[in-house]
């Protein structure tokens, strides 16, 4: 390898019929880096992962893992990587050990290496007790830990994690995140993970690529991404107005300095505004309409705010049913469906 880039992606594109799932994306991931692809469902995260893990072929562009081309040298790539997919890669009718032995043997691992490796990983993720139980009887958290173990059998240099904590209880989520950090710290494993959870990306990733509608719209460290907001004079305010009405909301929106208003519940609103006098202008507008202000709080920008600023939308599942009101165009909601293949 000429550089210390573990992954090099150039103009990668994937179409499904007329639908462009991944649109001409390019990025690099350094060795031992934790790289996050952040975006809403259907943004193209999984499709990108599937192309990088040689599961599907791109329509255009190239990608190299450890210097090997994902199309021309796919077997070489497969030897280097491990995949924790969104779906559980486990056979319910087989026991934990049977599952791991099956997958380990696909990597040509002899028993003398494979058996200790299985024991070690089961021990590390607290599953030793369940070694001979069928995976079908496992809880979701246990299954996801199994999924991680499976991906680590061949001691991969690059580990891909597609929504690794999706649908997990808080405790399992913390466990998996801690494990990812430990793996990166102790084994220098390069990690590329996708998530739609802002705090997860913030917590785990050295650098984050924000992906929306198949394109990478921003790519930097979490701190730098947030600076793009605070740096250009954006203020984020959280107001508690007990007598909040829709006309009052409209008034706030029409204040010149306000970029966007989002309602969090019956009395709380979050406002993005620019300018030094934003604070005063907003309070004046609320008071003028006889709005009562119970509390006011200035918030530090989050990745969510970054995404909102870049795309004009929140990174939320449709089910959350949150309305984002923008200055200018009317409320927008997500309408993309999740595409995995």
């Amino acid at each position: 390898m000429e550089s210390n880039n573990m992954i090099e992606v150039k103009n990668l594109t994937k179409k499904f019929g007329d639908f462009i799932a991944v649109d001409d994306i390019s990025f690099e991931v350094k060795q031992s880096e934790v790289f996050g692809l952040l975006g809403p469902n259907g943004a193209g995260k999984s499709t990108t992962i599937r192309m990088l893990t040689t599961l599907i072929r791109p329509n255009d562009g190239t990608a190299k893992i450890g210097g090997y081309d994902v199309i021309k040298q796919d077997s070489k790539v497969r030897e280097l990587i491990g995949l924790v997919s969104e779906k559980m890669i486990m056979y319910d009718r087989l026991t934990a050990k049977e599952n791991l032995k099956f997958f380990g043997k696909l990597y040509n691992m002899p028993d003398s290496v494979l058996n200790p490796k299985i024991d070690e990983l089961l021990e590390m993720l607290n599953l030793s007790k369940w070694k001979n139980s069928k995976v079908g009887t496992f809880s979701t958290g246990m299954r996801q830990r199994m999924n991680v173990i499976r991906a680590l059998l061949n001691t991969p240099q690059v580990l891909f994690l597609d929504e690794p904590t999706l649908g997990l209880d808080p405790q399992s989520t913390v466990e998996i995140r801690e494990f990812i950090k430990k793996l990166n710290r102790e084994h220098k494993t390069t990690i590329i993970l996708t998530t739609h959870m802002m705090n997860e990306a913030d917590l785990l990733c050295d650098r984050i690529g924000i992906i929306d509608k198949g394109k990478i719209v921003a790519l930097d460290t979490s701190a730098n991404l947030k600076k793009t907001i605070s740096g250009n004079g954006t203020t984020i305010l959280k107001l508690e107005i007990p007598n909040l009405t829709s006309s009052l909301l409209n008034t706030i929106q029409s204040v010149k300095c306000v970029n966007s208003v989002s309602q969090e519940n019956n009395s709380h609103i979050k406002i993005h505004a620019t300018g030094d006098d934003a604070f005063d202008l907003i309070i004046d507008a609320v008071r003028a309409k006889k709005g009562k202000i119970n509390s006011i709080e200035k918030l530090e920008p989050t990745l969510e705010d970054v995404f909102l600023k870049i795309t004009g939308r929140e990174v939320r599942d449709k089910a959350d049913n949150k309305i984002v009101m923008k200055h200018g165009p009317g409320p927008k909601r997500f309408s993309q469906k999740q595409r995995v293949r």
């Binding site: 893990t53 040689t54 497969r78 030897e79 491990g82 995949l83 997919s85 890669i89 486990m90 990597y107």
Partner: peptide
């Protein structure tokens, strides 16, 4: 459908 095929496909076989 269940995704287990991916598990075989990412292996160098």
């Amino acid at each position: 459908e269940s995704g287990t095929l991916d598990g075989m496909m990412v292996a160098p076989i």
